[in-house]
Simulated scan of single mutants.
Amino acid sequence: MIKPTDPDIAEQASHWVLKRLDGAGSNTEQRAFQAWLDADPRHLPAYRHAAAVWRNFAPSEGQPADVNLTNARAQFREAQYQIRRARNRRLRGLALAALLVATPPLTWNWLNSAEYRTGKGQRLSVALADGSRVELNTDSRLRVNYAWQTRQVTLERGEAVFDVKHDPAKPFEVLAPSGRIRDIGTRFNVYQGRDGTTVSVMEGEVEVATVSSTLNERLPAGSQIHFDARGSLGAPTAFDADAVTAWQKNLLVFRNAPLTEVLEQLSRYHAVDLQLADPALRDLKVSGDFPSTDLTAALKVIAAALPIKIRQAASGAIVLDR
Rank of each mutant, 00 (worst) to 15 (best):
D167S: 09
P105R: 08
L233I: 11
L37A: 10
L100R: 04
P104E: 15
G231A: 11
M202T: 04
L136R: 02
L100D: 05
G288M: 14
P59K: 02
V144Y: 09
G234V: 03
A95V: 03
R282V: 00
V17D: 04
G316D: 01
N137K: 12
E261L: 07
L128N: 01
A305M: 13
A176W: 00
D163G: 06
S223R: 13
A277Q: 12
V134H: 01
M202K: 00
D38W: 03
N216I: 08
G25H: 15
I310Y: 05
Q312A: 13
V272W: 04
T237H: 06
P258T: 04
P168Y: 02
S267P: 08
L215C: 03
K165M: 11
S287F: 05
H226C: 00
R48K: 10
D294G: 08
Y191T: 13
T260I: 11
D6L: 03
T237C: 03
I302Q: 03
L155A: 10
Y269F: 15
F57A: 05
V206Q: 06
A10H: 04
A257D: 05
S113I: 05
L266A: 09
A317V: 02
R89G: 07
A241S: 15
A114W: 05
P171R: 07
A297T: 11
S315G: 13
V199T: 12
P220Y: 06
A65K: 05
A221I: 11
I302D: 04
R42W: 11
A32E: 14
A257V: 02
R194D: 07
F172E: 04
G25N: 15
P220G: 13
A127M: 11
P7L: 13
S232Q: 15
N88K: 11
G23C: 11
K120N: 03
N256S: 14
V144H: 10
D183N: 01
T107P: 09
L259F: 04
G179N: 00
A313V: 10
P4V: 12
Q34A: 15
S60M: 06
V244Y: 00
V153K: 09
A95P: 01
A97M: 03
S26K: 06
L44Y: 12
L266W: 10
R151T: 02
Q224H: 06
E205S: 14
K309H: 14
L295Q: 00
Q149A: 14
G23S: 12
G185C: 02
A305E: 12
L320G: 01
P258H: 08
V174T: 09
A280N: 11
R141E: 15
K249R: 15
A74I: 03
G93D: 13
